[in-house]
Design a protein around this nucleic acid. Structure first.
Lengths: 186, 186
DNA sequence: CCTCCAAAAGCAACTTCTTCGCGTTAAGGT
DNA sequence: ACCTTAACGCGAAGAAGTTGCTTTTGGAGG
């Protein structure tokens, strides 16, 4: 017996979880944030509200799970041929996506409804795996410290997105990357 | 006529706001997080629930305001006689307070219930004013860039507190301060 | 292949929270 | 002292959240 997450992927649990997640995403695409309620989601997913309450506890926890799923599939950062280019492109895209209104909303969903730390952890690992892949392409790969890069690149971006998203200067990601590279020359 | 925030400080609005805020703080001190409801707060504050709903909209917004208030009174950072000492002491205390279970909870309250950005903004200014005061004591005060210090000190601490609070290494604040000072020698 | 078991979903009644219209109160201006 | 307006109290109606019990379902063992 292998350590599959919960039940077989085709089991009833999995089907319902997917139906509910789909319902949330679908509502998020077409409704304003505070118009989304558990009974609404349940209706669209074809389940009863009590199912959702029993499995997730409350709306915040469900939204956190759904949002975290968006960060659970690590996408490969664009490959430009140089470390600087890869970092610049990745950081710019990070600010672009995460700093957008929906992006910021998903981040807040993850944080606000996460009781175990699993979802916030997934966010950090999402960033870690992207940086790891970029560093893996560079010749001095082994020398670069992921946590240091998180501190210098991801943390400032996240901080500004969460606390001051309206005043992020254009070129902010570039500033951070250049600052990082200056501290860790190739 | 002066531009007082809303009504006179002694007015009814102000009295009720304070009663409600006090009720929230009092409940937070004695109840678990998810046991706090609007009707409960209303009862303790001696107002009707509809007053709270009309003024704040929902529980999240109220909690955000209450939590932001904790960051609205800038406290003077300890004075140690040196820039390094001041920064080390301040950063250590920051991690200590904000990284604690209640501290993290207040941060998340601020973020989760803030629709206008006023409360997250207050958080950033809280950090800014502390750093500003510390820098103001140093001889090269004018040379130091507050935003740069936010990026290098506050952002990493906040990022770790929010996303990975269980795994913040001891001495993390020291690492960040030393790294900052190395980049900006006196 | 059939039967049994446990976990999870459905159902329905109940409680609690949230919204809203309307009358009342209180603060500030004339 | 009176008037205006913004905010609160009250109560009813509606929506959301909770819970015990029954039913379904997927997997395990015979």
């Amino acid at each position: 017996m292998s350590t599959v997450s919960k039940a077989r992927p085709g089991g009833r649990s999995a089907r319902i979880q997917e139906a509910v997640h789909d319902a949330v995403r679908s509502l998020q695409a077409s409704s304003s944030r505070d118009a989304i309620t558990v009974p609404l989601i349940a209706a669209r997913a074809g389940v009863t509200p009590s199912t959702i309450y029993r499995r997730w506890g409350d709306l915040a926890a469900l939204l956190s799970d759904v949002a975290a799923d968006r960060f659970r599939t690590p996408e490969s950062p664009a490959e430009t041929g140089s470390l600087r280019g890869d970092l610049l492109a990745w950081a710019a895209q990070f600010i672009e996506e995460m700093g957008s209104t929906p992006g910021r909303g998903y981040i807040i969903d993850v944080v606000a409804g996460d009781s175990t730390g699993a979802n916030t952890g997934a966010c950090v690992n999402y960033a870690r795996s992207a940086l790891k892949e970029i560093f893996g392409r560079a010749p001095d790969a082994g020398l670069r410290d992921l946590e240091d890069a998180l501190d210098r690149l991801v943390a400032p971006m996240m901080y500004r997105i969460i606390f001051d998203s309206d005043r992020i200067p254009s070129g902010y990601s570039t500033t951070l990357v250049e600052r990082y590279l200056a501290a860790h020359p190739t």
